[in-house]
Design a protein around this nucleic acid. Structure first.
Length: 174
DNA sequence: AAAGCGGCCAACCGCAGAAAG
DNA sequence: CCTTTCTGCGGTTGGCCGCTT
C-alpha cells in the first residue's frame, strides 16, 4: 500500500519528485547494483547524488543511491548487534537530543541513523514500555499515585550532558 | 504440517534547511 | 535579496522471517 505517486500535482511546484520518474527502479537493491554503486563511489567519490545514478549507470534515483551507500555500503558501517553500551548510549542521547537520529548516529561510530531509529523503535521502546516508561518522553507511562510528577522531572533531568560519556568510546562527543 | 501473527529490517516519501546562481 | 535546486533528516510502510497455535 505504497502511497499514490502524484507527479505534477505535488504542491511543491518547482520540486522534481526524484523517485517518480518512469524507468527508475525501486525496491531492494541487487548485489550487482551494490557493486556498481560502491565501485563508482570508490573511484569518483560520493556527493552530487542527483546525477550520480546516471553517471554510474544505475536506474535508481539519487536519494535511493545515497541511502543505500549511507546505510549499507559505506565501509565504515558496522553491522551486527547493538552492544549493551551502545544501547545505553542511544538511550542517553535520545533523552538528550530527542529524535535527532542523525545526530545520535554521529556519536556512535559505525552506526547509521536508520539503524538506530529502527533499533529504538523496536527494542528500546519495548523495553521502556515494559518498565512503565513512555519511550517518546522518557516519562512514566502511568502518572499514577501521589501525582508525583517529581519522577518525571527527575527522570528527565537525570542525564546531564556531562554524564554522557560514561564508558563509551572517547570520540563519542567529539 | 499449515496458517496466522508479530517483529525486524531495508527502503521510500515528503519536508525543511542550506547552498548556489 | 530572491528564487531555484540539492542534500539530508525523520517518519512511515512493506516484505521477509521466525515463532506460536
Amino acid at each position: 500500500m505504497k502511497k499514490p505517486i502524484l507527479l505534477g500535482t505535488s504542491t511543491a511546484t518547482s520540486r522534481t519528485p526524484c523517485c517518480s520518474k518512469v524507468g527508475i527502479k525501486k525496491g531492494p537493491w541487487t548485489a550487482e547494483e551494490d557493486e556498481v554503486l560502491a565501485n563508482y563511489i570508490k573511484i569518483e567519490g560520493g556527493g552530487r547524488w542527483r546525477t550520480l545514478p546516471k553517471r554510474a549507470g544505475l536506474l535508481r534515483c539519487g536519494k535511493s543511491c545515497r541511502l543505500r551507500w549511507m546505510n549499507y555500503l559505506r565501509p565504515t558501517v558496522k553491522r551486527g548487534p547493538i552492544a549493551p553500551d551502545e544501547e545505553d548510549l542511544i538511550l542517553r542521547l535520545h533523552r538528550l537530543l530527542g529524535n535527532r537520529w542523525a545526530l545520535i548516529a554521529g556519536r556512535i561510530p559505525g552506526r547509521t541513523d536508520n539503524e538506530i531509529k529502527n533499533y529504538r523503535n523496536t527494542h528500546l521502546s519495548k523495553n521502556l514500555i515494559s518498565q512503565g516508561i513512555d519511550p517518546r518522553t522518557h516519562k512514566p507511562l502511568n502518572p499514577v499515585s501521589h501525582g508525583s510528577s517529581q519522577a518525571n522531572q527527575d527522570d528527565d533531568d537525570d542525564v546531564p550532558e556531562s554524564n554522557l560519556t560514561p564508558q563509551a568510546p572517547s570520540n563519542l562527543l567529539n
